[in-house]
């Protein structure tokens, strides 16, 4: 169907698998990174159509990766959806301030996330 490339930055393998299973079912191409540095390496290699960014990451935080993406003119236009951990702690605002376009709080319904991705990339 769409074949669009989505970069998923997430340190937990099971969560990565859930997104992988969900998105491949809906014909998206997945690129994965388990921390911020790997994510930047991946970005240097391929330009994705959308980034799913876990905020809490080891080594380089998702917020910092977001700021760097926004600072790079070739990547600045890529939509970024933040996946926040603490729904009640203000991470959502931090994510938007860092340059994310939207956020979903863990635990999210896979269905809701799919809706949000379709909102950015089209059906």
């Amino acid at each position: 169907m769409s074949g669009k490339l989505i970069l998923h930055v997430e340190d937990n393998q099971y969560n990565r698998k859930i997104i992988r299973d969900l998105l491949s079912k809906h014909s998206y191409e997945i690129m994965e990174a388990h921390n911020g540095e790997v994510a930047l390496d991946a970005l240097a290699r391929r330009r994705p159509d959308l980034i799913l960014m876990d905020v809490q990451l080891p080594k380089l935080s998702g917020l910092e990766v977001t700021r760097r993406v926004r600072a790079d003119p070739s990547l600045a236009q890529i939509p970024i959806i933040a996946i926040t951990s603490f729904a009640l702690s203000g991470d959502d605002r931090l994510a938007l301030d860092a340059g994310c376009n939207a956020y979903v709080a863990k635990p999210f319904r896979p269905r809701d996330l799919l809706e949000m991705i379709r909102g950015f990339l089209g059906p």
């Binding site: 099971y14 969560n15 859930i18 299973d21 951990s85 635990p107 319904r109 896979p110």
Partner: peptide, 14 residues
């Protein structure tokens, strides 16, 4: 606690 729970719920929903 939430991280594994997220996985449990996510897989159940999938």
């Amino acid at each position: 606690l939430r991280t594994p729970l997220n996985a449990i719920l996510g897989f159940a929903e999938l």
